[in-house]
Structure formats: structure tokens, C-alpha cells
Design a protein around this nucleic acid. Structure first.
Length: 417
RNA sequence: GUGGGCGUAGCUCAGCUGGUAGAGCUCCUGGUUGUGGUCCAGGCGGUCGCGGGUUCAAGUCCCGUCGCUCACCCCA
């Protein structure tokens, strides 16, 4: 035997026993999002690398070290999509969707790829459901986005949820703040942990999350981005909060909430679950008012979110999904040469829209009946050329039926029930 | 990239101080039963992750390596 192959690191097979829960999640997402007027979109699994380099931001971890980038064979650099928002904004610009009624509301359920070291709730190919509303800067868009994700998580019974909310202001305000924070950190460098000190240039905001005592003390006096919003951004944030309050959505304002993609402006939010391990984020998103323009489209506001399928399923616990009912299981005696007759019965049953399964494993009579029990078939037909023994497993009775009449007999019985 | 834990049948796992592999479940067959479920018997299935080393002898000890997993970082 050759060496046994296995899936690449960070990927997994969705086996039949797990497919039901995923299908149920997809159905729930579809109902909620399409009910709110979102239409499904599917973009390619890979894009020109430029889409992410410009959209997600060249300085982010995603672009710097997590992308699967390769030559497409013709000298162009392409990248397996690491996230969904930039490709959708690329599509919005490419197809001139600014001429449609605004905002254009789109949802997706797709797989994404990041070259990270896998751990609980983190994979190299992972699935996200997401929603984007592009073309309006109304605070109601932000609030509606959050409410939709909140509804989805509630309906999926994702446990231990917490919602954190912040506003990043405009890109300009954010960059100005970043420099101010870096200056503050450098001024207090001797009070900070080595870890935080090393990251002043790369990720100064992380200093807020440190549990190092000296760092915590120093950060108590650090400037906060929320205090630096201009009047429009502050008003926008206040409006979003008011709508959430009226909708009865519980949240906490977290001035240190950062998201690792450069395109966010104004509102950002994240749902976490304490039912997960270290990767506690189940879903999050925010507003990205400059993104469409960065990708070559007209200046267009937008807002959206994405939630991890694996993490939602993990935090929701496995909800068992019933197997589809089997109406008829067609058994036969191969030694008696009844295979062809049985094959015809199964075929006819399926034409009549019955869920029918044919014996395919050469089982003994006992094995066939055991299998009928295992798949919980309503009827078992033991077929021979002329006469079939048709057993109603629920009623516990059986009849001899001419083989040609088996399907008609079942349909008639079912009509009478 | 760094660190912790783990790698024995499809699954869950036993194999004590080294002596050339076991159980339960699953699947299949036969018997029993009311033609299923129960019960009994049998069968399929493993180069003990891989490669070296020590030894008369290694799943069991030593070294290396690969894989899985959890955590750091970051994110969904």
C-alpha cells in the first residue's frame, strides 16, 4: 500500500454527519439576510493580488504574511481570497453598481484562505457568512448591520456572546491619532513591557490589551481615539448607538477595539463568545467609506460584517439534524435473479418522487432487513420477478403485491393516510 | 516562527518494570428470534506515524523527524 494521504494542514473534510448542521446554518442566514433585502453574491476564489494589497492594506498581517499568492501562469500575481469585503467592493465598482438603487445590499457564504498556523477555531481554509451594504452613509445602515448579525447569532443559539463597539473616525483622524499614541508610548517607554515597546511602530494599539502592570498604569493616561473624533463622526456614532439602544441590543463601547484591516472607518464592532478558546471572535465588521474608491470606483460609503462558520458552529454546540426520511427500501434475492426487477421498482419510485433506496451491497436477507431498519425506511419491498412482499415497517404489516404495482400501491396507501 | 500535550485496527482506547499485538464499538456472515431490533458464534480490519540507535529481543528505552492538537501573534 502507498503512503496514505491526508488533508493539507489547516483544512478539513466536511463529512456527512457535519453537513446537516452547516446546511441548517446556511438556511438560517439566507432567511434572515434575504428577508432584509440582501441578495447573494459569489466572487472568484482568487483575485488579482492588488485587490487585497490595496483593499485590506499593505501593512496588515493578512497581506504581509498570510496570503496564498502565486503566479497565474501568465506572469500575473493572483491571491486566494483572504477575506470577502474587498472582492465585493471590486465587483461593485467593476459592474457599475453605483447606478443601482442605493445602498446595494449583498450577502455571501464562501470559503477564504489564510496561511496561519491552525488552532481551535482557526483554519487555513475557513468559511464565512457576510453581509455588505454599499452606497449609503446613513447610521441606520450601521445599526441594521449589527442587528442582522446579532439576530443570526441569536437564532443559531451561539452562547456566551458579547458585543463591543467603537468608532475609528475618518482615515485621516485615525492616522493622526496613531502618531499621537506612538509619541505617548515613546515618552513612557521605560514603563512599558518589552513586548509592547517592540510593537510601538507595528501595532501601538495593542498596548491597551497588555496585562503587564507597568503598561496598564501607563495606558490609563493614554489618549483615546474616541476622544479625537470630529463633529460629524461623533454625531454618526451617537446616532448608531441610539438606534442600537432602541433596538434593545446590548453592547459595550470599547475605545481600544481595533480591527486588523486597514479599510475600516467610523463604526467598528465585534461579537465574541466565551464558548470558544483563544480565538474568541465569532464575527465582526464595520464601516469602510473609502474602500470602493481605493479599488478604482467612485467615492462610495459602505458597511458590513463577516462571521466565521466554524466558530459559530463551535460556540453553538452541535445541533443534531435529522436524516431525510426514506419512503422505500428495495430489497431482492440476487440468487433468484431479481436484480433487474428491483432496479426497475426503485427507478419507478423515484420518478414518482418517493425517496427510494436500492440494495447495493449484496447483503443477505437478514442484512437487508437490518439495513432497512438502520435507514428507517417506511416500506421495504422484497422484490422478485412477479410478486413482491411489501412490508410497512410503521404499521407492522405486510402484503403480497404484484411487482408492477408496488409503487402505485404505496402512493395509494399514502393518499389514504 | 516559538512553546506545551499527543501519535497502537474505520472510531474510543488497553498494553506494568523491553520478549515479535489486544478489547469494546462499527461493518459483514451464520445461528437464535416473529422476516429487523435482543442474544450467541465467527469473520474483515494494524509493517504499533516514520527513520535511525541500544539489545539476543523494542509498541515498550534513546536520538532525530513528520503529523495532529492547544497556546503565543493575529484574526472569523
Amino acid at each position: 500500500m502507498s503512503e496514505r494521504l491526508q488533508v493539507p494542514r489547516g483544512t478539513y473534510d466536511v463529512l456527512p454527519q457535519d453537513a446537516g448542521a452547516r446546511a441548517a446554518l446556511e438556511a438560517t442566514a439566507r432567511r434572515i439576510l434575504e428577508g432584509a433585502g440582501y441578495a447573494r453574491i459569489e466572487t472568484p476564489a482568487f483575485e488579482h493580488t492588488e485587490v487585497f494589497a490595496r483593499g485590506v492594506g499593505a501593512s496588515t498581517d493578512i497581506v504581509q504574511k498570510e496570503m496564498y499568492t502565486f503566479d497565474d501562469g501568465g506572469g500575473r500575481s493572483v491571491t486566494l481570497r483572504p477575506e470577502g469585503t474587498a472582492p465585493i467592493c471590486r465587483a461593485y465598482a467593476e459592474h457599475g453598481m453605483h447606478k443601482l438603487p442605493q445602498p446595494v445590499k449583498l450577502w455571501y457564504l464562501s470559503s477564504f484562505f489564510r496561511q496561519e498556523k491552525p488552532q481551535a477555531g482557526r483554519f487555513r481554509q475557513f468559511w464565512q457568512v457576510g453581509a455588505e451594504a454599499i452606497g449609503s452613509d446613513d447610521p441606520a445602515v450601521d445599526a441594521e448591520s449589527i442587528v442582522l448579525l446579532s439576530t443570526l447569532l441569536d437564532e443559531l443559539e451561539v452562547g456566551g456572546l458579547r458585543l463591543r463597539l467603537a468608532s475609528l473616525g475618518t482615515l485621516a483622524a485615525r492616522h493622526a491619532y496613531r502618531e499621537e499614541l506612538q509619541a505617548y508610548l515613546r515618552a513612557h517607554a521605560d514603563e512599558l513591557s518589552a513586548d509592547v515597546r517592540e510593537r510601538i511602530d507595528l501595532n501601538p494599539l495593542r498596548a491597551f490589551d497588555s496585562d503587564h502592570p507597568g503598561t496598564r498604569a501607563a495606558m490609563a493616561g493614554a489618549p483615546l481615539l474616541l476622544d479625537h473624533l470630529d463633529a460629524d463622526d461623533a454625531a454618526h456614532f451617537a446616532a448608531v448607538r441610539e438606534l442600537l439602544d432602541r433596538a434593545g441590543i446590548a453592547y459595550e463601547v470599547d475605545p481600544t477595539l481595533v480591527r486588523g484591516l486597514d479599510y475600516y472607518t467610523r463604526t467598528v464592532f465585534e461579537f465574541t463568545s466565551d464558548a470558544l478558546g483563544a480565538q474568541s471572535g465569532v464575527g465582526g465588521g464595520g464601516r469602510y467609506d473609502g474602500l470602493v474608491e481605493m479599488l478604482g470606483g467612485p467615492a462610495t460609503p459602505g458597511c458590513g460584517w463577516a462571521a466565521g462558520i466554524e466558530r459559530m458552529l463551535l460556540a453553538a454546540g452541535g445541533m443534531p439534524v435529522a436524516a431525510p426520511p426514506v419512503d422505500l427500501y428495495v430489497a431482492f434475492d440476487d440468487a433468484a435473479g431479481s436484480r433487474a426487477a428491483a432496479f426497475a421498482v426503485a427507478d419507478e419510485a423515484r420518478s414518482a418522487r418517493l425517496h427510494a433506496q436500492l440494495e447495493l451491497a449484496g447483503r443477505s436477507r437478514k442484512g437487508q432487513l437490518k439495513h432497512a431498519d438502520r435507514i428507517d425506511a417506511r416500506y421495504v419491498a422484497v422484490v422478485s420477478d412477479d410478486t413482491t412482499v411489501l412490508r410497512d415497517r410503521h404499521a407492522g404489516e405486510q402484503h403480497g403485491v404484484p411487482t408492477g404495482d408496488v409503487v402505485a400501491w404505496i402512493l395509494r396507501e399514502r393518499g389514504m393516510r
